[in-house]
Amino acid sequence: MPESDSRGEAYEAEHVHAVYEQIAAHFSSTRYKPWPIVSSFLSTLPAGSIGLDVGCGNGKYLALNPSIYTLASDRSTNLAKIAASHQPHSAIVADNLALPHPLKTFDFAISIAVVHHLSTVERRREAVGEILAMLREGGRALVYVWALEQKGSRRGWDKGGEQDVMVPWVMKGPKQEKPAKRRGKGERTFQRYYHLYRKGELEEDVVAAGGTVVESGYEKDNWWAIATPREAEVSTA
């Protein structure tokens, strides 16, 4: 594992973005079950709410509430194309660190299993800050990341362990597509970079990014936080 100063944009291009671009279709076919916290966050939004899904993947959360409008974005063109099929929503290709939206505009945002792919603490906080900057006053963002504390999972990570890890994605052997090229090769394995959050770390990142934690918790191998932009310090003079 490289030291954190060799991580950053180029590192993520290789160990996150290139991987998702290649596994998009297969990844998408395995992603259909929404996390309960995400479902309840989205389903309680009032009709007519407008918001962002930053790092939307295949857009599986877009179908949850058709009376809101979500502008979804992903770094992967192949995933954004899949996400774009959900009406009445939209999907574009964008980087979490340079979101192409007007500031202080949106009622809500979700960032589900995204920020943990950024490879330095500065970049993770910048990502959260960028999302918060798009929210209107009182707007809320749900941020959801993988936890270090996953005693119950087959991966066996837990408190005190290494937080920066590579996680394999195994793509099963050839089906119908490109049979000549892939036949006999069996499975392909891709390695994705993850930063596993320890307890309390997500809340620290929210505060460092200029947010206030409204609510936070743990849900099956993940930490989550609902954050709102900190009100601008009003001069009392």
């Binding site: 502008l71 009445p88 939209s90 980087d95 979101l99 007007p102």
Partner: peptide, 15 residues
């Protein structure tokens, strides 16, 4: 409708 919620991605332009 999407364009209603989009602007330039560059920091100097967004505001």
């Amino acid at each position: 409708l999407t364009l209603n919620f989009l602007t330039c991605a560059r920091k100097a332009c967004k505001s």
